[in-house]
Write a protein that binds this DNA or RNA. Structure first.
Lengths: 199, 199
DNA sequence: TCCATAGACGAACAAGTGTTCGCCTATGAA
DNA sequence: TTCATAGGCGAACACTTGTTCGTCTATGGA
């Protein structure tokens, strides 16, 4: 990609970030200091052809930047620059839409620390009442919400902590018990990485 | 929001997901089985006014769905439905753009397990060579990339594991050493939650 | 009954918008 | 030199698109 093409991409990218919709041909022309819309169309065609941009023809503001997410590097091959293509194992799409049956539960306390979940971590919960033995999830028991591992044994149902300082919680027939959802992901933000926006 | 309004939102949402740009008034009309664009405009005005939709007037395909991310629930107040407004402590925007100076490093091995980072976890690294003592980061030493805590003491510089089975790595004057970046976030996907897309 | 609100019709208008066509310049490789 | 490629101009064209206006129906209070 040429420098000029990078400049176009940056402009389009920023425009989309700022406005939530892509720029029109004339807006790009203006932003890039061009007087002809044909020049823009040429450039868009080049960018589309090289795969840097996705676009639906004849559609107003039909530009998309084909983000494939943030690269995941696995074993890094010696000799190569760290972020080079050869090291990429895959991508994680942080912009992938998640249905509104998901929410994060902020972990309070160390009761799951042996499962590497710490106080302050956020666990992504998917709302469901389907839970199998051994699965981690969020549960409400007698009015209190807790993060535990669900265990069904011959001795009954238990909510198991992952910390010897805490005792398993037996779920009796007369307890007010509800499965809230299962844990799909654990996120821990360090030193101001991904922050939580106030409500 | 009325049922009809929800149907509009769903249509628009799906359209954006499918196409990467928002539908035009006429496309909405067609999709909702309406014959007049005025009906659509009425509805869009209602949705915009109630805050369900964001939109720039007079701009083609200028619709946005105002996602404020995934809610984070902290201490859940008893008596309330779990996902009710009152429980929301904040939001995490998974669709927040991250610059391309970030990448994920897939953790290989248990050398940081006492810091609650497990084999297979993904750590978000921000490329930088600024690192202070006590900070966790990715380092290259003698051709090998490793995730460790950086420690500068009177005895010299060390890369500290968080696992008694591993020994600190002293960084000597003649070692080939480079700071790759610092850890901003830890992500662990459980049972097919957020998956890694193949490269 | 009166009235506000949600929802809808159809036609016409005024911008907005992508595309095309012919032509031009500069750069770098063959 | 010759040629391919990136980048650009300006005007004209045709289609897309949001908006407006008057009118209508149904529903659910007050």
């Amino acid at each position: 990609m040429t420098d000029r093409q990078k400049m176009f991409m940056q402009f389009i990218d920023k425009f989309i970030r700022d406005n939530g919709y892509s720029p029109s041909v004339r807006e790009i022309a203006k932003g890039m200091g061009l007087s002809s819309t044909a020049s823009v169309k040429n450039m868009l065609d080049r960018l589309t052809q090289s795969g840097a941009l996705r676009r639906t023809e004849n559609i107003a503001r039909g530009l998309e930047k084909p983000s494939h997410g943030i690269p995941v590097l696995g074993r890094i091959k010696a000799g190569l620059p760290v972020t080079s293509e050869e090291n990429v194992e895959g991508y994680i799409r942080l912009d992938k839409p998640i249905g509104d049956d998901h929410f994060f539960l902020r972990v309070d306390g160390d009761s799951m620390k042996d499962k590497a979940i710490l106080d302050g971590d956020c666990v992504l919960i998917r709302l469901t009442n389907q839970v199998t033995s051994g699965q981690m999830g969020a549960f409400r028991i007698n009015g209190e919400v807790t993060l535990k591992t669900f265990e069904r044994t011959s001795a009954g149902v238990f909510l198991m902590p992952a910390n010897p300082d805490f005792a398993p919680i037996p779920v009796g027939e007369y307890d007010d018990f509800r499965v809230i959802g299962t844990v799909k992901m654990v996120i821990r933000a360090l030193e101001g990485g991904y922050d939580i926006e106030p409500a």
